[in-house]
Design a protein around this nucleic acid. Structure first.
Length: 273
DNA sequence: AACCAGGTCTCGA
DNA sequence: TCGAGACCTGGT
């Protein structure tokens, strides 16, 4: 099945918003809705196996019009430059449970390790779908095998992860979709393992709040060096949403990944003769 | 061999 | 409300 869409799979699937996509030759292999899915980049879209068009378009946020978004966030010249570098990078619309649980594991760890932890959790608690591919476990699957969590190499994230599974199993995530951004984040930060940053990730990557602007150490540096912005998380977050607008989350992703390809801020201010 | 990683939590001021 | 430290573990 083919979907016509302006998307760059490489950028979209490796930018650190989802941790389970693997490249196999020209195909990207992953798990969606508990099913093994393969995606392939086409000139004008995506070829997909293992998933219907509707849920695929939903996952890839095909309803986001990139041109409209670029026009909006591109009013910022630096973001505009980053967009040039990473055209076709899309946010994904993930499941809140998997997204939140993954980013609880992602705290204070680098990407390779995050991938490893998530994969170990899937292998330990998930269902085998074929080959060496496992589903992301449900909260119940984690609670059923709770003794094994300690051997997943999660470090101090282990307790938070299990506690979050308990909360999810008890319906603690119900109703989040209906909430506006501020209230959504307010609810999320009450949950075990979720602070300001993870709450924004969950809001942005799984709950349709494109104005959410997750601030990690790297983005914090960028805000300071490129925009002279500093302060507490709440202040920075509000200032970023104000500056970058309703698609601030997209601006964040492009700044995060697109900046590395540009000359340093100092060099841009004082270009070489 | 340090240092750091897509932070959170706890605890004083 | 805010800032400082501690914190598992493994990449680089």
């Amino acid at each position: 099945m083919k979907v016509a869409l302006d998307i760059d799979l490489e950028h979209t699937l490796t930018c650190g918003q989802a941790f389970r996509w693997r490249r196999r030759e020209e195909w990207w292999q992953g798990v969606l809705d508990g099913k093994l899915v393969r995606l392939r980049q086409l000139d004008d879209g995506v070829e997909a196996h293992g998933l219907e068009e509707k849920p695929l378009r939903r996952y890839l946020r095909a309803d986001d019009d990139l041109e409209t978004i670029y026009e909006d966030i591109g009013r910022d010249p630096l973001v505009a430059a980053c967009v040039q570098n990473h055209h076709g990078l899309r946010l994904l619309r993930q499941q809140p449970w998997e997204c939140a649980a993954s980013f609880i594991l992602a705290t204070n760890a680098n990407i390779p390790r995050i991938i490893k932890m998530v994969e170990t959790v899937c292998r330990t608690f998930g269902r085998r779908l074929g080959g060496e591919v496992y589903s992301f476990p449900t909260p119940r699957q984690i609670l059923n095998g709770q003794g094994e969590a300690a051997s997943c190499g999660l470090g101090y994230r282990c307790q938070r992860f299990v506690a979050f599974a308990e909360l999810a199993e008890d319906g603690g995530l119900d109703g989040l979709e209906a909430l506006p951004y501020e209230e959504c984040v307010r609810r999320l930060v009450e949950m075990p393992g979720i602070g300001n940053k993870v709450a924004d990730c969950v809001a942005l990557f799984s709950l349709d709040h494109l104005e959410a602007f997750p601030i990690d150490v790297r983005i914090e540096r960028i805000l300071l060096q490129e925009y002279g912005m500093e302060g507490t998380y709440k202040k920075l977050s509000a200032a970023a949403r104000m500056r970058f607008g309703p698609y601030a989350g997209y601006a964040q992703e492009y700044l995060y990944h697109g900046l590395s390809g540009l000359p340093s801020s100092q060099d841009r201010r004082t270009p070489a003769p």
